[in-house]
Amino acid sequence: MLTAAPAVILVLLVLGAALIMVGLQSLGLMPVFGEPQLSLNAWADSTSLLESAGVSVYIATLSTVLSAGLGLLIAVYALTAGRGGRLVAAVSAATIPIPHLVASGAIGLLLADAGFLARLFGMPEGFPQLVATQWWTAVILEFAWKESAFVALVILGSISRSAMALSETASTLGASAWQRFCHVILPLARLPLVVSGLVVFVYTLGSYESPWLLGPLAPEPLSVRAVRLFGSTQLSARPEAMATALTSVVIAVLAIAVGLLLVRRSGDRS
């Protein structure tokens, strides 16, 4: 327990202080200019805050589901398909270092109306619109692309040794591929899958680059709203930016609490 102290203290100190600052600013108690004055103005526009929260949760949920599914697929393939599996695992891991800023740019070049994919198909009339759509298609695909590799890495990192050995044993005992997946790999993968899914959810919830580059102008997710208001040339917008950021924090904390319950349960079961 004691070895955890330095990390815990650092986190509590930095996060605690930062959140206090954000909170104070959202309440007008730390204006960039002028006299501090307690005010709930920044929280008054609750419809727009809630709408942004809805968009953020929508993007994060779909991105998490897709990333978890694809990540599990990549991991299982890597564990079961021999040399081909190792190749897929290696290539997938190689995409991990790509920053979201770069990845968003790449997905934009690929999926835009006149992007590489449309050009490959000869720019057909009916080519679907993917970038800046009301369904946030390109944004979710970008998250799914980046984060499925992350999910696969976490699963492989934590279970590859045990899964390989147990899988071999099961195989010699006559288990089919499907049985090995269901009864060996899936139970082992449950914990890392839940943990990485949780990480993906909260990450995509707070992520800015992708929805900003690939999303429509309105409605905006919390991250885009916060950054827009923060960069606004109106001094009064800053408390609103802080309120938006805090909303995002609250949702993410709730998600983590729920996620930890799931982790405990899947931990108990396995």
Binding site: A4, A7, V8, V11, L12, V14, L15, A17, A18, L19, I20, M21, V22, Q25, L198, V199, V202, Y203, L205, G206, S207, Y208, L222, S223, A226, V227, F230, A241, M242, A245, L246, S248, V249, A252, V253, A255, I256, A257, L260
Partner: peptide, 18 residues
């Protein structure tokens, strides 16, 4: 739980506060 909380704070909010 504490060790997970930095995930909940978007980088932007963390930076603005600190």
């Amino acid at each position: 739980f504490v060790m997970l909380t930095p995930l909940a704070v978007p980088p932007f909010a963390l930076v603005m506060g600190s």
